[in-house]
Nucleic acid binder design. Structure first.
Length: 295
DNA sequence: CCTTAATCCTGGAAGC
DNA sequence: TGCTTCCAGGATTAAG
């Protein structure tokens, strides 16, 4: 589900609510979603949230004592901040009812709740993920995350330099769509934003990545930043169920020019060609056959 | 190297 | 109304 803008919106909303809060208890409902140590301490129990970081589509909660939890939302993952003051009538998600103890459905929790962090008496953080393509990875410290998991990611799409993007694109024989989706090349772009970026840049998704010269790479970087930061300002794209940690939907979907618009007319002034779609790099891809000519 | 397909899952939408 | 099929914001793996 979430690409860089959505994950950044989750990070910002999460940070507003949990920064500096002490984790009083952690409850793991489905241990399988946690890779690495599943111990309460590894999940920051007893620690205070010191940093909420993001690289590409991944998040990290860092504790004051150095503990670190990396969170990848996958397709359907959500982080949700719950406070008793929002709904005083609802029982705390940490209160188990007797009936629930033997049940496969854990008491009052919504379906697909996998991990809960309690922070003080009236605040909790909930990780849900119906499809379970996402997950949590625990590390002894932020340095370990940087040396292992995040070392496999390319530069973040919001801070990649023209030189680095040019170098990486030049080094691959693949098409632009496949290259830009590859998180090792640049981290953060997904199916929506690659299609939107290529449309804006007037580049065909099948054009060879190694045909992009230095100047074009510079233009691509500028366009990438504008697109992504604009999407963040609009709260990300909510196609179906994306919401940030405070349950707010985004509005960037209203600005999509090709994604989800196959068969409709191109919105570029004076164009009006029919938006095409097909499978490229294993993903449904949309483009304008007039604005994005295959060279 | 490159590409495609299958795989991990659930749920919503579309088709009959 | 129900049942079936397809599709989805991700990413890895194996096969060709």
């Amino acid at each position: 589900m979430p690409e860089l803008p959505e994950v950044e919106c989750v990070r910002l909303s999460l940070r507003r609510r949990v920064l500096g809060r002490r984790v009083s208890a952690v409850r793991v409902i489905r241990p399988g979603v946690v890779r690495g140590s599943v111990s309460p301490a590894a999940l920051l129990e007893g620690d205070r949230i010191d940093q909420v970081l993001r690289h590409g589509k991944q998040l990290a909660l860092v504790g004051q004592q150095g503990g670190c939890v990396c969170i990848h939302l996958g397709m359907s993952g959500q982080l949700c901040v719950l406070s008793q003051t929002d709904d005083p009538a609802s029982p705390s998600p940490f209160q188990r009812t007797n009936a629930a103890i033997s049940s496969t459905v854990p008491d009052n929790l919504p379906a697909h709740t996998h991990v809960l962090w309690r922070m003080g008496d009236n605040l909790a953080l909930r990780f849900t993920d119906p499809r379970r393509f996402g997950g949590l990875w625990t590390f002894a410290g932020l340095e370990d995350l940087h040396r292992s998991r995040w070392a496999e990611l390319g530069p973040d799409a919001l801070s990649v330099t023209p030189a680095a993007l040019h170098r990486h694109l030049a080094a691959t024989g693949r098409g632009l769509k496949a290259a830009l989706l590859d998180q090792r090349l640049v981290a953060g772009l997904g199916n929506i934003y690659v299609d939107e970026l290529l449309f804006g840049a007037g580049l065909h998704p099948l054009q060879g990545a190694d045909t992009i010269d230095r100047a074009q790479a510079g233009a691509l970087v500028r366009r990438m930043r504008t697109l992504l930061s604009g999407a963040i300002a609009r709260g990300g794209s909510t196609l179906r169920d994306y919401v940030d940690a405070e349950s707010r939907r985004g509005t960037q979907q209203d600005r999509h020019r090709v994604y989800g618009r196959a068969g409709k007319r191109c919105l570029r002034r004076g164009c009006g060609a029919v938006i095409q779609s097909g499978q490229i790099a294993g993903r449904t891809t949309a483009w304008c056959p007039v604005c994005q000519v295959l060279l």
